[in-house]
Amino acid sequence: MTLHEMPTAMTPWSKEVATELVRDHAAEPGPLLPVLHALHEAFGYIDPEAIELVAQELNISRADVYGVVTFYADFRRTPPGRVRIQVCRGEACQAVGGRGLVEHATRSLGLELGTTAPDGSVSLEEVFCLGNCALGPSVTVSGHLRGRVEPADFDRLVSDAVASGGGER
């Protein structure tokens, strides 16, 4: 039982679904970020086709959309792994072994930060502060925040998540 579990199975890219999502938010003031968040949540990434679509629907240039998508660290442009892991690199986590945990994560998964395993199982990302600074080092596994994560805990969290097939919140 988790409190606000919002399991959203990733939908494969669909122009029709995307168009509807864009239109849901188009009337909001400054709609671009809400639109991109909605697409990202549904598909797990911003498909190249989405850039053209969003530009048309919101009547802004493709360059404007592309510029925003590439500015913000949250918006990935390729599909994520089934399990998405973020490791905190903030100073408060560094003070309790965060640097070592980042090293362990890259080594044990064989992935650089910001990359996805070739088999699509796991994505590893860096994040600068999860607001859990008294209980570091912190990671998120498929959207779930975990604190005081030692390397052994990390391995267990990852293998449990991979075994259960991901389950983005």
Partner: peptide, 21 residues
């Protein structure tokens, strides 16, 4: 927000709400 520390700067935040970098 969308993972940009700079958006804590007030004018960058306004740009972000308006839908820009």
């Amino acid at each position: 927000g969308a993972g940009a520390y700079i958006c804590g700067e007030e004018t960058a935040m306004l740009e972000s709400i308006e839908g820009r970098r």
